[in-house]
């Protein structure tokens, strides 16, 4: 049985969210990244880490809103997770639907290809020849995905593999399932 995730995503975005112009968000995010680059003296590896850490803290909140608005339970398998992330998750928050690609044979890995990325609209990386090799501008998304999935007991490695801001042909995030976390049990139970 395949559920109409695309329709669900569109419906939730259309009817159950408050909307703002994406440019405002783009401006704010851009300002945050710029400030981090200044604070860390253009140590882009540190900036990436900080962005991921911020994203994680956002993700653990965002997942509750996601569940509150969709009433979803836990997924049956990782393929379902991929569908839900791309068609409902991304749609509901960023109003965009990335493509699920390269789903691995063992069912534990896939890529998300972002055709449009509201965080990076009209953005250009600094011209220091370093950013384009080391900075993952939208790395907050990595943290958000990791944090959100962790809260539903999925331990997933998430990372950017390509970014059009770096001159790549596309913007892609890789997700690899490490393990399914066991629910905690109360003391005294076996």
């Amino acid at each position: 049985m395949s559920k109409p995730y695309k329709l669900i995503g569109e419906d939730v975005y259309k009817n159950r969210t408050e909307k703002i112009n994406s440019e405002l968000f783009t401006l704010t995010y851009g300002s945050v990244v710029a400030q981090l680059c200044r604070d860390y003296n253009n140590d882009y590896k540190k900036v990436n880490e900080q962005l991921e850490s911020m994203g994680y803290n956002i993700g653990i909140r965002l997942i509750e809103e996601f569940l509150a608005k969709t009433n979803f339970g836990r997924c049956i398998n990782f393929k379902e997770t991929a569908e839900i992330i791309s068609k409902v998750g991304f749609k509901m928050f960023l109003n965009t639907t990335p493509t699920v690609d390269n789903f691995s044979a063992d069912g534990k890995q896939f890529n998300l290809i972002l055709e449009d990325n509201p965080l990076a609209e009209f953005v250009e990386l600094p011209d220091d020849n370093k950013a384009v090799k080391e900075l993952w501008y939208s790395n907050v998304l990595v943290g958000v995905l990791k944090g959100a999935l962790q809260m539903v007991q999925l331990d997933v490695d998430v990372s950017f593999v390509k970014d059009i801001l770096r001159g790549d042909p596309s913007t892609e995030i890789k997700l690899r399932l490490n393990k399914i976390l066991k629910d905690e049990i109360p003391a005294g139970e076996d």
Partner: peptide
């Protein structure tokens, strides 16, 4: 009466 979320609440 119970409601359990996917996040374990």
């Amino acid at each position: 009466h119970l409601k359990e979320t996917a996040t374990g609440l």
